[in-house]
Design a protein around this nucleic acid. Structure first.
Length: 427
DNA sequence: TCTGGGGTCCTAGGACCC
DNA sequence: TCTGGGGTCCTAGGACCC
């Protein structure tokens, strides 16, 4: 059943928001980097460049000007600077972006109730009933664009695609950037597909493309002509999806979410909460890894408590200097959202993985979420910590993460060594 | 002196239960 | 004494998305 779907994709979103907010950045190549330092420890000297960005940051969004000079998303700042010496590195502000996302999601809801926030900068709108035909849908898209401009600022632009399903609408929106409006009627979908590369389609990544190429499939036309049963025997259910996609068909429906969802994202129940951190420098020092891990566990736990979740599973992971990695998970029967407990389990896993190799990254993720609150600890010391958490959480809610931190994350490395304190006693 | 961080979904093998 | 099959949970790992 064909629908009329509008896909809206903000152009160079984070960079555009910064350029909108700061006239001095307009017309210049800027690269938004990850926010750094939220769990940095005062005792460790971190080498930062003049922008306050450490050497291992990457570009999360490049402005249009930067893209023209060859800067790409996920490129290391080091490489980006080499390609584009005039690049301005600018630390991202996720909170700011989420606020703007909520603003434009509210606009979309004035046009249809069937809105799906696909990511912080992309949304799908089902306007089948509201529009009735492609002419009216195009008119709606133009009205949305005018309102985005009026209410969010002229420097924040979007590429819009209209198609008979989500897959085609998204492919259409990517056809013209920035600020494009591409309409693909059902009869035009094959033409659209045949003008694109296999991996332009959302769902076909580099590995799948490679496997298709090995089967002699290089284009959507060849994919359409490839026998369905061969495709299914190679890719199982995914083969069926590939076959349908090559014909421009997609049965995915809009997962309606509201504008008041979690920071502009879908209100679908989250499946996991996780954080990871690449150390400014590889280390052999267990103590350093331990402290970062505790900081990450506290962040994960705080987000779960804020959203009234507790987790039954924790996955801890470690990446070594040579980029090999190890991940392990544990399931427990009593759900928890206590940072220290998460840390303890994660450390049981990570602590056993040190084999003398330098560590590059640590992370943990909490999943198998339940709405049951975490169970009260049987131990007095832990009860004491738990009793102060609500107060700390409300501080954090009001003033943002980073307003408090555990003493063990602030003590300097030197002090701990010289005083003979053991880390475990400081938590 | 390269290669982030936040997620979701799928598959496959083994354990365990009926 | 030989040994099926469905269902579910757990774990590891891979692929994809922005």
């Amino acid at each position: 059943m064909d629908k009329i779907i509008i896909h809206i994709d903000m152009n160079s979103y984070f960079a555009s928001v910064e350029q909108q907010a700061n006239p001095l950045l307009r017309g210049k190549p800027i690269g938004i980097t990850g926010k750094h330092g939220s769990i940095a420890m005062s005792g460790q000297r971190i080498k930062v460049n003049t922008d306050g960005v450490h050497d291992r940051s990457v570009i999360t969004t490049a402005s249009m000007e930067a893209k023209l000079l060859g800067v790409k998303t996920a490129m290391s700042t080091w490489e980006a600077r080499k390609i584009c010496p005039s690049l301005i590195l600018w630390p991202g502000d996720p909170h700011k972006y989420s606020e703007i996302t909520e603003r434009f999601n509210k606009i979309y809801n004035d046009f249809t109730t069937k809105v799906e926030a696909f990511s912080v900068d992309e949304s799908f709108l089902d306007v089948t009933e509201e529009a009735g035909d492609y002419f009216t849908a195009t008119f709606i898209a133009q009205m949305i664009r005018a309102r985005l401009r009026a209410e969010c600022g002229e420097h924040i632009t979007a590429s819009i695609g209209i198609g008979p399903n989500k897959l085609m609408a998204k492919l259409a929106s990517e056809s013209m950037k920035p600020n494009g409006l591409t309409v693909t009627r059902p009869e035009d979908t094959l033409k659209l597909l045949d003008s694109r590369e296999l991996d332009d389609l959302c769902g076909i990544g580099p590995r799948i493309k490679q496997r298709l190429n090995m089967l002699g499939v290089e284009t959507f036309k060849q994919l359409r002509e490839f026998p369905l049963d061969s495709l299914e025997s190679e890719f199982n259910r995914y083969g069926t999806w590939l076959h349908e996609a090559a014909h421009g068909r997609d049965s995915n429906v809009i997962q309606s979410s509201t504008v008041h969802g979690l920071r502009g994202m879908s209100t679908e129940t989250p499946k996991s909460y996780g954080h990871s951190y690449t150390l400014p420098r590889n280390t052999h020092d267990k103590l350093i890894v331990k402290r970062y891990l505790l900081g990450l566990a506290d962040k994960v736990a705080w987000r779960m408590r804020r959203d009234n979740f507790a987790a039954c599973r924790i996955t801890a992971f470690i990446r070594y200097g040579d980029f090999s990695s190890h991940a392990e998970q544990r399931t427990f029967y009593i759900p928890t959202n206590d940072g220290h407990k998460l840390f303890q389990v994660a450390w049981q896993i990570i602590g056993n993985c040190f084999a003398g190799e330098p560590v590059r990254l640590v992370g943990l993720s909490a999943s198998k979420l339940t709405h049951k609150p975490g169970q009260q600890s049987l131990f007095k010391k832990e009860q004491k910590i738990q009793s102060v958490l609500p107060a700390l959480d409300s501080l954090q809610h009001r003033y943002g993460t980073g307003v408090w931190t555990r003493g063990s994350l602030v003590k300097t490395h030197f002090k701990q060594r010289s005083s003979g304190f053991h880390f475990d006693h400081l938590v």
